[in-house]
Amino acid sequence: MQIKLLAFAQAHDLLGFREREIEAAPEETPRQLMARLAPEFDPKSARAAIDCNYHDWDAPIGADARELAIIPPVSGG
């Protein structure tokens, strides 16, 4: 299935894109996906979110996933 990979702030700077369509399997975890797509990325530097909810790096994304976002430490306000 195809999902959207979103990268914000420092993750955008590191990965070089803000949004990309990627091929993913429901049983894949965000950690596995990022290791496959961007081995230089360190999951310790950010949190993952699936469809606007924080998601464990090691939990499968599931068949309903549409969007995986990489969320570096936030700094609003």
Partner: peptide
């Protein structure tokens, strides 16, 4: 609310 925003709400400043 402000404390929680600064921990969990995906907003960034540069």
């Amino acid at each position: 609310a402000i404390d929680r925003m600064k921990c969990d709400v995906p907003i960034w400043k540069k």
